[in-house]
Design a protein around this nucleic acid. Structure first.
Lengths: 166, 166
DNA sequence: TCAATCCCGACTAAAACACTCGGGAATACA
DNA sequence: TGTATTCCCGAGTGTTTTAGTCGGGATTGA
């Protein structure tokens, strides 16, 4: 388990996708501008997210990325372990040989802690953040200012439709 | 907030201290052998732990490190932020200028997430792991095998005393 | 005194991070 | 059919962090 700026980039990018989930794909160029990180670096992160089936890309004009599953089925834990890739276990653990044939019990305690942490992060989904009152309205406002006019209009339409359905 | 192998080293080392809390100080040499990391590197980590008032050193023969507070008053969150030092915030956040005068709301969401995480880790103390039935007995056994005879004997005495008190 | 400890700072190799560049392939739209 | 827009891919590069080494102190118990 690991949590660095890389994980933060992954999670915030996925939040962005979740916010615009019903408004067509989001381009990496948009996220790049917003997050303040380079486009190519984002591409590398999204390659991992795609490899782990968390997002899917849409090519061509008007394309971008969208979530490959509903936001309530994507946990923060998944995202982090996707971009950070590989949890290197303790040096002696599982080999069992921690000096003198007995293995350090602190390693077991650590394993338990990281399990707890992973469980905690698994319980936090993207939808928990996105489906709060006001978020979508804020997103539309923001998008208008930032020049996502078309997306914002499409998003509004989709919102209206879903309201009519309810 | 950040969580890498460095944080793991810090937490496992602190667990070791907590286990032997009532049995005199623990030497870095012992921890070094057990964790499989270099002594000097451990010294650097403990310099930070000491700077943050989580441990105190005892010099001279029979010396080592001990917790500077009871184990139930030391949280995992404290340890991690001590060794990892400085949480670098988002690039545009708090400056408020995330492209076009409006700030990315994903950053706010991220802040909320890392707050939740920190709160979670603040609720986990060293004593939660150490004060479980069997741990102390296991520690004594392990120490005997590993050559901590003197410590083990002192620990046993302390244990007996505390039993008489109860 | 002597050995065991903690303490301290400077240096170094390797890995991870963040980024750049240069090209492709698919696709909406003219 | 062309063209711009997007995703896709790999190779290379500078910087930072990680993990470690080295060499020397300062304290202190026996």
């Amino acid at each position: 388990m690991r949590l660095s700026t890389k994980g933060r980039y992954g999670v915030t990018a996925m939040m962005d996708l979740a916010i615009h989930d019903n408004a067509g794909p989001v381009t990496l160029a948009d996220i790049s501008q917003c997050q303040g990180i380079s486009l190519s670096y984002l591409e590398q992160l999204f390659a991992k997210l795609r490899k782990h089936n968390l997002v899917e890309g849409v090519r061509g004009p008007g394309g971008g990325y969208r979530l490959s599953r509903p936001a309530d089925q994507i946990s923060v834990a998944e995202i982090i372990s996707a971009v950070d890739e590989k949890v290197d276990a303790t040096k002696c653990n599982n080999q069992g040989d921690c000096q003198g044939g007995e293995r350090c019990l602190t390693h077991d305690l650590w394993t338990e802690l990281s399990d707890r942490l992973y469980t905690f992060l698994s319980g936090i989904t993207l939808s928990q953040f996105v489906n709060r009152p006001g978020i979508h309205e804020l997103a539309i406002q923001r998008d208008k200012i930032n020049g996502r006019f078309i997306l914002a209009r499409r998003q509004a339409e989709v919102l209206n439709q879903s309201r009519q359905h309810n």
